[in-house]
Computed example of a mutant assay.
Amino acid sequence: MSIESVNSDQLLTDDDETANAEVQVCGRNVEIPDHYRVYVAQKLARLERFDRSIYRFDVELEHERNRRQRKNCQHVEITARGRGPVARGEACAESFYGAFEAAVHKLENRLRRTKDRRKVHYGDKRPVSLHEATAVTAVDFTEAFKPESSAPSAPVIDDHEPGRIVRTKDHPAKPMTVDDALYEMELVGHDFFLFQDKETDRASVVYRRHAYDYGLIRLA
């Protein structure tokens, strides 16, 4: 895995807003060109206006290993870390540029909803202006970059075996209400969220159902 940090405030022009967040780009078996890192840093710097407490963006690139998803084989995940809960956007596309654009769009929507909710909570119900809503312009790239290779290599053997646990994530069990758990789930963009119910003191799970409905599972 290759990891490199980019200081985004050095990549903006005089007309852009000052960027303070660090951008860390890493790839799983992916060689990341410098021009892609610059592009990522410039794009993410414009999202800081939604939350000035963001101090780091983690961007992870990976070739999708699912053979049934060959048309959407490039995966990008962006995590914004600030004083509040983390916000995440992830997407798959035929190219890393297309996947990054889609992930940025999802992350921007979640950060905007969080900012609007904060405004309403403090009594500021000013609607989002057209300039704010259209500040990030999507760029269409037709081809993805490929990992650099100076010599022919042997075929890659996919050693993935179904049914194994390939990733484990831990998060603090902070007691919260069901409404807060739904808000956290929407913020990170997952289909479920595990939390400690503040009212019942039980481990519970909220999950997304069809037609914008939700479900709740509690341990007896």
Rank of each mutant, 00 (worst) to 15 (best):
R52D: 12
A41Q: 02
L12F: 09
F50R: 06
D51F: 05
R28D: 08
K43Y: 01
A21P: 05
V40A: 10
V38Q: 08
P33Y: 03
D14S: 13
V23R: 04
E48P: 01
Y39F: 11
E31L: 05
Q24I: 12
A41H: 00
N20P: 09
R28C: 08
L11G: 05
R46V: 04
G27W: 08
E62L: 12
G27S: 06
F50L: 07
P33I: 05
V30T: 07
Q42V: 01
A41K: 02
N29I: 01
A41Y: 00
N20M: 13
H63R: 15
F57P: 05
V23S: 06
C26P: 01
D58L: 11
F57Y: 15
A21Q: 12
D16F: 12
Y55W: 13
A21V: 08
L61C: 08
D58N: 13
V23T: 11
R37D: 02
D15Q: 10
Q24Y: 06
R52F: 09
S53M: 08
V59T: 05
P33G: 05
F50E: 06
L47Q: 02
L61R: 08
V23P: 05
R56E: 12
A45K: 01
I54G: 00
C26F: 12
D16S: 15
D16V: 07
A41I: 03
R52E: 15
I54E: 01
F57D: 04
D16Q: 13
Q24G: 03
L12V: 14
Y36W: 12
Y39A: 02
K43N: 00
Q42K: 13
R37N: 02
A19Y: 09
R37T: 00
D58A: 13
H35D: 11
R52S: 10
A45S: 15
R46L: 10
Y55H: 14
N20Q: 13
N29P: 03
